[in-house]
Design a protein around this nucleic acid. Structure first.
Lengths: 383, 383
DNA sequence: AAAACTATCGGGAACTTTCCCGAAACTGAT
DNA sequence: ATCAGTTTCGGGAAAGTTCCCGATAGTTTT
């Protein structure tokens, strides 16, 4: 029968229930509960595991502490031992496990980047700028795109936070009106920097360009070219960029004594379809505009395509100016007048700011300059 | 003087060296070494730490195991206790620490994506496709770009591996001739899937499109349009796509009895500058080509810009066909004839393949179809 | 009422690394 | 030889989870 592992007797052993499908026994003599050892576990199929600090220590017959010291470049170690360890580590292709380190220090060395999209020129370039300084500082990057959806943005913030990123670089969606998910980030004291699509009501650093000045120059340029009825296809009001560029547009009109026609200002959600719809709407107005200042280049390009398809001549019948100097704007015909902004540099600045934040938090706003690039879409030949 | 903490006597205590700036003592009576306890450590500045499973357990007066079971949806738990735990977890905004889990299971739930660049349409779109299926499967994504540099690619592979990604999605650079860094990945048994810019000599799954067929159709289309002297601005020979598209080009010429002029085939490194240089070179040949088939759309667009700047009329004097249906190709004038490939779908397929790999490794090659899109850049009006 | 069982729960190991501190083996000085 | 100091190393705790297994209390069967 069943032998008690304690007293090696079988007389006093009786069944004592089943746990997880396994029979348990009880020895009345020893007052001892036990189960039979599982017959498996003989395979010894120790997972093909990465080589650890302990492997090195064992092979060298020393302690893990010493190996750690050697690897970390610590001082309390004999030069010979260090060399020995370093050699073996290289030979075994030892790679430190960042997970253990992260768990210990509760720092992942990962920063999250959250952007609305990266199909166009703007955000990829910005990300590249940020990645340049971050990877130099030893950080990896986790990129999420919210696809201009508020829900996706929230989900991404949550995912990034649960991944325990050390910091966050974010540009909000056109939909975002509620910023509670970002407040949650700040509550957990995770450093965060906004860029381009910022969030002024939150006490956190931001990197933007001089949107007001850029818009002002753009519209003034149109006015100087003789355009008089200038529309503005603007972004949603929730975005600070939209508001700033709208202000630049307004003030430029005002400065030159042009009336501000509310019908010529359209806020939209930055989607391609809506851009086309509103472009068509503007051009089919009883009194259509003779120029349009678009919130950004993709929008301007959509407008151009619509105008062309309607046979509206650019720049003679319709002047167009965009914003951000997307490479496509130089390729398209006629080439698109636009506002250049230092996109790569914005990414760099944002990353630098984030690194500073991780050292010691403080609140700053970086504003970078813009520059008007005059091309053909706005040079009115017959004013 | 100094009192021995063991016998509480001071008579037998004497100095016994200094370690890390701290005086040590020795009690001859007790044969006991000791140092004075540091006066600090009174601040109790326990780092603002995230709420853990232990916090919940303590507050509820239960064990961490029980909490873990409740959170993980295990069975061995009372319904009431589970509810209690779940409620408190929600109230405390508990988020499981993925680091601990990753360390335990040695799985990070992160996959690395390595692409040559993401400035253009192609790779961002592919990444989005991949991200769609990966995030649905609970994986986060770490994106690296090698910037068409072999060294950067190696560094990125190393970084991704040291981050302990669970899998790798990669598209190699135009420079990559040596694949040892990828062999190292396979040696460590980290699943890897190549897409687009694949590596046929490695035993690992790949996702490509039917490059040969696409190229063949493109060139045949040009021939049918009456073009006779068709050049090919090809990618580097190290890339399988380059070789396949070159073969398609060759066979199309051969099928229609056109001579294969080696001078009209140029391999280049896919950089913008070189594209311009070679486009100029081709167009200034004593016997310039009357059409060019470009390895991809960005290349074709560069060629168009060069041709335009030289006053070469497209498509009358020069037909152009690209590859990959970049959105810009529809915008540019004349619009660019190109080969459509299911980019988003490639990303999805690659990700799916990777997920399968992580389950049980096997070697497959997915080839997706292409489709010719005829636009204006190649429709010869006066053949 | 003893025997066998079920439903819950707790305790510890393990994952890998770093850090703190104690300890041994030396080197000089007295 | 004794004492003080230096150099080098080892042991253990900690980080947050999950998993394995043993251990109760209560319930049903014999």
């Amino acid at each position: 029968m069943i032998k008690c592992p304690k007293c090696l007797q079988i007389d006093f052993v009786q069944k004592a229930g089943i746990t997880r499908g396994k029979q348990r026994y009880f020895c009345k003599d020893c007052d001892y509960h036990f189960t039979l050892p599982t017959p498996s576990a003989t395979t010894e199929n120790k997972r093909h595991h990465q080589v650890t600090i302990m492997d090195i220590a064992h092979q060298l017959g020393i302690s893990k502490s010493t190996v750690s010291r050697a690897l970390r470049g610590h001082s309390d170690i004999h030069e010979g031992t260090r060399k020995m360890i370093l050699d073996l580590a290289q030979q075994l292709e030892y790679q430190p496990n960042p997970l253990a380190n992260a768990l210990l220090k509760s720092r992942t060395n990962i920063v999250g980047i959250l952007v609305p999209e990266f199909r166009h020129y703007f955000f990829p370039t910005m990300i590249m700028g940020a990645q340049e300084v971050l990877s130099k500082a030893g950080y990896n990057v986790m990129i999420c795109q919210s696809d201009e959806s508020y829900e996706t943005e929230m989900a991404n913030v949550k995912a990034l936070m649960s991944s325990r990123v050390d910091g966050l670089l974010v540009s909000v969606t056109a939909q975002t009106n509620n910023f509670d998910h970002f407040r949650a980030v700040l509550r957990k004291e995770v450093p965060m920097v906004f860029f381009n699509r910022v969030c002024p009501e939150l006490e956190t650093p931001q990197v933007i360009v001089d949107d007001y000045e850029g818009a002002f120059q753009a519209v003034e340029h149109l006015i100087k070219q003789g355009y008089r009825r200038i529309a503005h296809l603007a972004g949603p009001n929730s975005l600070l960029v939209s508001r700033l560029r709208l202000n630049g547009y307004r003030d430029a009109l005002q400065k030159h004594g042009l009336p501000l026609d509310p019908d010529l200002i359209i806020h939209y959600d930055l989607s391609e379809e809506k851009a086309r719809i509103y472009a068509n709407y503007l051009l089919s107005l009883p009194q259509p505009p003779d120029a349009i200042f678009a919130i950004n280049d993709p929008t301007a390009i959509e407008i151009m395509l619509v105008a062309k398809s309607r046979g509206v001549k650019i720049p003679q019948e319709l002047g167009i100016v965009g914003f951000s100097n997307d490479p496509v704007s130089a390729i398209i015909e006629p080439s698109l007048t636009t506002i250049e902004q230092p996109v790569w540099e914005m990414g760099r600045q944002a990353a630098k700011l984030l690194l500073e934040q991780m050292e010691h938090p403080h609140n700053v706003i970086h504003t970078l300059p813009t520059r008007l690039i005059i091309r053909n879409s706005s040079v009115n030949l017959s004013p």
